[in-house]
């Protein structure tokens, strides 16, 4: 894993992509800092950090797009997969390499903190919280990018799909505000979800009995809950979408609140996508 991590970090700066990422991110962050803090003579640093979150929508795809797609295009995955390393080590090595470059770049923004400390009042704990939140939120974005990069052998495709996926994650909060929250729509969407799960099981197992069993179980649970606890269906879609809302959990950090459940959430979210990446790569060997 360490060998892959080292090679990936080196490779970011042997090719232009590492510089493009850093340059793009720091330029955009610098412009935001200029307008939100320097010109307006404000020492509100969390506002600035909240706005650079937006830059990651464009910057993270640059960081993750080539991780696996380029290996496949150049056939260098043959070297990795025939070497005595596990797929898990390969995925983790690449993930942590991207995270390392991400954190390195983020550390450069600490000089803005220095500027604010000298010329204004820094909200210390909010800033510390924001940086911790940033580290974990960024890692979650990167995990999504790693997964998407493993699904294609074209960098551009990987970048675009990652961008749209991150945008969907961004839009989840505004969308979940406007979805219907009544009982009926809650039941229907729960049924649709159960159906989707059944299709997923069928595609993966091709076993009709298992699927029928799962469908019956799902129907039973949905009906039982309808009679036992109807409240669960009120705002069901909103609650469901909220599971995927990465940004909402960041709000606590920017208020200086270190919530363990948010950290655990980010770690699980990243872990899930890295696990899916491993499965995707292993599945391809069987096809």
């Amino acid at each position: 894993m360490i060998a892959i991590l080292k090679r990936e970090i080196k490779s970011y700066f042997l090719s232009p992509i590492g510089y493009i990422y850093m340059g793009f991110f720091l330029l955009a962050a610098g412009i935001f800092f200029l307008f939100s803090n320097l010109f307006s003579q404000s020492s509100g640093f969390t506002g600035f950090l909240g706005s650079i979150l937006f830059i990651y929508l464009f910057a993270i795809p640059l960081l993750t797009m080539r991780l696996f797609s380029e290996e496949r295009r150049q056939r260098t995955d043959q070297l990795l997969l025939t070497s005595p390393v596990t797929v898990g080590e390969i995925v983790l090595g690449k993930f942590f390499a991207a995270v390392a470059v991400y954190l390195m770049t983020l550390l450069v923004t600490l000089m803005y903190v220095v500027v604010i400390v000298i010329f204004g009042d820094l909200a210390v704990w909010e800033t510390v919280g924001s940086y911790i939140g940033f580290a974990f939120l960024g890692a979650s974005y990167i995990a999504v990018g790693v997964f998407i990069s493993a699904g294609t052998d074209n960098q551009l495709t990987a970048a675009l799909v990652t961008f749209f996926s991150l945008m969907m994650i961004w839009l989840i909060d505004p969308i979940s505000q406007s979805v219907p929250a009544d009982l009926q729509s809650g039941v229907i969407s729960a049924a649709a979800l159960a159906l989707a799960l059944c299709v997923f099981i069928y595609v993966n197992t091709r076993n009709l009995y298992v699927v029928i069993g799962a469908a019956l179980l799902g129907a039973l649970v949905i009906t039982a809950l309808y009679f036992i606890n109807q409240d669960i269906y009120l705002g069901f879609i909103r609650k469901f979408l909220a599971w995927f809302s990465l940004n909402k959990r960041y709000q606590n950090f920017s208020m200086g609140i270190l919530k363990v459940d948010s950290l655990v959430y980010y770690i699980c979210f990243s872990g899930l996508f890295l696990f899916l990446t491993v499965r995707l790569i292993e599945k391809r060997r069987w096809n």
Partner: peptide, 20 residues
């Protein structure tokens, strides 16, 4: 399976490392 952006020595060092 070569990484075009690496030198021969860097590449072989990496290959040696992942081959333990």
């Amino acid at each position: 399976p070569l990484y075009p952006e690496m030198t021969v020595r860097e590449y072989l060092f990496f290959a040696g490392e992942i081959k333990k």
